[in-house]
């Protein structure tokens, strides 16, 4: 299971980093960094929250 970011959609709103700070971070230029490429089962819930919270619908989980 991993996170796929549509980079051209991402505006750097940072909602994912707020919902799942262990999986995402936004740097001082508001650029998004995925902190963990391959997710464990315990990451599923925060990852799903991040996907839902993204106002650009730029994130998805691929099994």
């Amino acid at each position: 299971m991993r996170i796929v970011v549509n980079r051209s959609l991402c505006d750097g709103n940072g909602m994912c980093a707020r919902e799942a700070p262990k999986l995402f971070a936004v740097d001082e230029h508001d650029a998004l960094h995925v902190l963990k490429e391959n997710l464990d089962e315990k990451d599923r819930e925060p990852a799903e929250r991040a996907v839902k919270a993204c106002p650009k619908a730029a994130l998805r989980i691929v099994e």
Partner: peptide, 19 residues
Amino acid sequence: SPYYEEMRLAHIAPLRPKS
């Protein structure tokens, strides 16, 4: 897409949260 996103990314910088 992809032109919509290219145009947007070319002028969004001052509107991002930290700016």
